[in-house]
Amino acid sequence: MDAEVRVQRPNGSRPAGCRSDLQKIYWHLCDTWGIAVQAATALGFVICVVTTLGLLVRWRHVSREPGRRAALLLFLLATAGVFALPFSFVISLSAETCPIRVFLFGMSFAIAFGALVARGLALLDVGLALGWREVGVILALALVQAIIAAEWLLVVLVRDDRPCAFSQPEFAMLQLYVMVLMGAALVVALRFLRAAYVTYSYSHTAKMRRHAKLQAGLLVLTLLLSVCVWVTWITLLTYGNLVTGHRPDWDDPVIGVALAVNGWVLLLGHGFAQVRFLCQREGCAKNPPLDFTGWTSSTTEPAAEPKPGTDNSRFQLDVDERRDQAMELFGIPMKEINAEKNYRIPRPTATNINQPYDHYYEHRA
């Protein structure tokens, strides 16, 4: 009975849930780890797609910081690619899955970690990564990994005319540039974390400082967890599985689980956080300033112009009459000024305006 359930093969046995006529390359689809990885990655992929579509819909109505939104869209697309990659490892290595493993693996992580590098530079106010230049930094960093992967595929598949087969250390070495990007992103994030907690500016409010500290902490936490995931799967792939005697049975499961875990780390640590920060900033921008005009005067009726006058007109007239009587008593007649007469005081004028001292020097000579 047991022999009918499991059929032995060089790198493992057919799981009990698989049909007998199912090809060997699909046996992992009905294995326990394969089902768990497929469920976790499918959920993450759907969430990434829904979040991306939501940002695109909001983009039509709100155009605040379009460069930052485009960079976040690239990050979400790269995270969706990370969630889609485990399916190529659940299916055994073949001529169809090999280019996907080699090319899309490095490209997805290069875009994701490149986005983290660009975001850290933008948070540090580096002019190279502000506005739409943040998207340019991401694409430029990802282009290097695309050249590396494409060159490897062309050399192996076209020039050498070999099947797409590689060893575990070779696959790890293909991701060397991605590891450099991850390290650079961690360094930039740590510098921003230090600036958020040490640097103080009177132009920043308490809310802005808390926002910067939270964003720096999430960025550092995301990258630290990613580093732990990468160290774990590379160690197991190149050394651990060989020592424990589980090579090659555990090679694909290790990478598949690592992809699922790292995808959720990127989505929860940076993707959701950036979406929330953007929504908060939009909400603050949409709140209109406070208007106190209705508290003091009516907004429908225009304010009446001030009328000239005194507080007590009778008192003012009495004061004017007493002043006139006092002036007349001292012999100063009080008469009204005639506007037609010229009351300007005459001033002396020079006879020779151009050379006023010529007459003086002539007499002196």
Results as ranks from 00 to 15, higher is better:
A122P: 13
A122H: 08
L124V: 05
L124S: 09
D125I: 07
D125L: 07
V126W: 14
V126M: 13
V126I: 12
V126E: 14
G127M: 15
G127L: 15
G127V: 12
G127W: 15
L128R: 11
A129W: 01
A129G: 09
A129N: 10
L130K: 11
G131P: 01
G131W: 01
W132C: 06
W132S: 11
R133P: 00
R133L: 00
R133C: 00
E134I: 12
E134S: 12
E134Y: 09
V137F: 04
V137L: 06
V137S: 06
L139F: 14
L139T: 04
L139E: 13
L139Q: 05
L139Y: 11
A140V: 08
A140E: 10
L141M: 09
L141F: 06
L141A: 04
L143F: 11
L143V: 10
L143M: 11
L143H: 02
L143N: 07
V144Y: 01
Q145K: 04
Q145C: 05
Q145F: 04
I147K: 07
I147R: 05
I148K: 01
I148F: 02
I148D: 02
I148C: 00
A149W: 01
A149F: 06
A149V: 04
A149M: 07
A150K: 11
A150R: 13
A150N: 08
E151M: 14
E151L: 15
